[in-house]
Amino acid sequence: MNLTLKIWRQKNSTSKGKLVKYKLDGVSEEMSFLEMLDMLNEQLILQDQDPVAFDNDCREGICGMCGLYISGRAHGPDVGVTTCQLTMRNFKDGDTITVEPWRAKAFTVIKDLVVDRSAFDRIIQAGGYISVNTGSMPDANSIPVSKRNSDLAMDAAACIGCGACVASCKNASAMLFVSAKVSHLELLPQGKIEAAERVQNMVKKMDELGFGNCTNTYACEVECPKQISVSNIARMNREFLHAKVCKEKH
């Protein structure tokens, strides 16, 4: 199929970018979206032009590196997939596809479609861990975990930190990401111990970094490639309120 692409081109984080139009012919519907961009880049290199910079790594939907805002949808029109898993089958011959980077104050554009998502790392550093002494491997069954909690923790842990929640939220809020991390640790006995401090520190960091607030439109849940539920946001709100109300004087 033949496509018209409108791609955001930006030299560096300080320069002003713009959408540039490209024609791309002979795209196979079996290609992934990133393979289509590879094809465009090969064409650009042959024409002695600067190829389009975009983030990617595993190309099997588990690393969370790729993430493009494709014609008004984070990770494109398909449901429950990352950009690398999005096939060109979702588009028609003659389509015009607009590709933009994630837009948020906390995610600055480094070049073209590549954004700096280290804000997520800083949120994790603020509390996305458990403190345990290293040593020999503990017995797997020494701490009982209910099946329900284990399933819910696993569902929350499926978050790959791609940033689609922030990109699709009208407020550029990181609540789904943070709540997934808070939930997956809080639901397990090892993480429960630091739950109160964790939720306060992670929320504080999230606010400091300039992410927006949740107004419950739930676009994040719709666009999340791992289909993380907004019930995690409610769990985080619950945990946060509990931590604030029950906090003792030091």
């Binding site: 906390a106 550029a172 927006g212």
Partner: peptide
């Protein structure tokens, strides 16, 4: 605050 969280807007309106 929420408007300030996205200083550069998308050129295509969100279709979610």
């Amino acid at each position: 605050k929420n408007w300030m969280s996205r200083p550069v807007k998308y050129s295509v309106v969100n279709k979610t």
